[in-house]
Design a protein around this nucleic acid. Sequence first.
DNA 1: TAGTGGTCTAGACCACAGC
DNA 2: CTGTGGTCTAGACCACTAG
Lengths: 237, 237
Amino acid sequence: MSEPLHQRISAELAANIRSGEWPPGYRIPFEHELKARYGCARATVSKAVEALAAAGLVERRRRAGTFVAHPHVQAAVVEIADIRTEVEKRGQSYGYELLSRRPRNLRHGGDEGRLNAAGPGLALVCRHFANGRPFAVEDRVINLEAVPEARDVDFSKTPPGAWLLDHVAWSEAEHRIAATGADATLAAQLDVAPGHACLRLIRWTWRGGEGITLVRQIFPGEAYDLVARFTPASFGG
Amino acid sequence: MSEPLHQRISAELAANIRSGEWPPGYRIPFEHELKARYGCARATVSKAVEALAAAGLVERRRRAGTFVAHPHVQAAVVEIADIRTEVEKRGQSYGYELLSRRPRNLRHGGDEGRLNAAGPGLALVCRHFANGRPFAVEDRVINLEAVPEARDVDFSKTPPGAWLLDHVAWSEAEHRIAATGADATLAAQLDVAPGHACLRLIRWTWRGGEGITLVRQIFPGEAYDLVARFTPASFGG
DNA sequence: TAGTGGTCTAGACCACAGC
DNA sequence: CTGTGGTCTAGACCACTAG
């Protein structure tokens, strides 16, 4: 028995749910019943059921029992690695080019205003390549009050995203994903026709409420798929 | 004290991490130290620290201790509600129209092949409206072997997505998000110019490995933002 | 090998929602 | 009211690993 007991219990309960044998709304056995069935302490089955509740598979109600949840919202965990990792995951060679680097005060309105930071910033524009072809254009500002070390970094070789991930802790992020047509400048940078459909990803990153960085990344539509998987429980399968 | 102790401990530890006071790599106090500090059982502090580990805020290593995690992957939880909910959340009125409904055997290749289902299916095309304007075009197949009840449902009033959520349990889903230009048909259906940049969302849904439904939803680019928030911990803030 | 986290027990009391 | 889940205790033994 290498697997912990509470994990085995979770897996068995989850299997009953995922197979459809226990449909939404079904009341799963009470904790004292599970305790008797597995011959263990209630804390152990409670931990097992708690994991299912955290995963959204069941809903626990005092005095009533624990019920198989009725899924009504599609929730997905999206992992957005930095672009180098993303490109290499596709088995392509990664390239990087800095197009522009200049200090600039952070703006108050618009997307930048959401950062909740005002003061000196560093504005960067760069391109990422996959197998020598443009993969993404990136437009970023870094809040120098939050990350003063960035002022002395030459980003001509190191992509700012990778550098930030290595040097700065972040605690919150928000993404917005939309489609947009390429204007003339962008079309030239991405080597596509003007008006070409592109995927635009905007990401704000904060640490303890203080804005760290805002980045807009634009990908040629056909080159990039954002993949989001939902596995409500990682129990035994 | 209405808040459970383990929750208070989690919140206090998380605050130290999110403020940057405990940077990535910092070793947080040992469990026996926290136990002494809070005057409680070790199981209680262990539960608190476990929640932080589950949220990805810390990493626990036997014999070494528990360390503030070094975030390196942007992970976000995306909640994709059904379109009616999405529209109404924006404070707009929702409308629905069925364009086509016909039985069809599921295909083996392409996107449909991923469903891992072969046999009778139901193909549906419909439009969603927000404030009377086209909001999305939806192209869906339902696996009738998994959901035989769908054969008898008239989807002229009820959007299939909402019906499925109410009648079928699902256990796994995968999304792909990309940008695409509108072809002539789509442009007419969405009331945009041909070539207009649109957001395409493909979702596969399974239950216990059996494909339930595949849906492709296309939104006019400027009308739709997919929002993804990351809050690594919901402790006290 | 010593000390950490990981797991588990056999109790206990409580809040609260259903009956 | 009754019985459920929610929380907590004061122990215990184990697995693993860093020193």
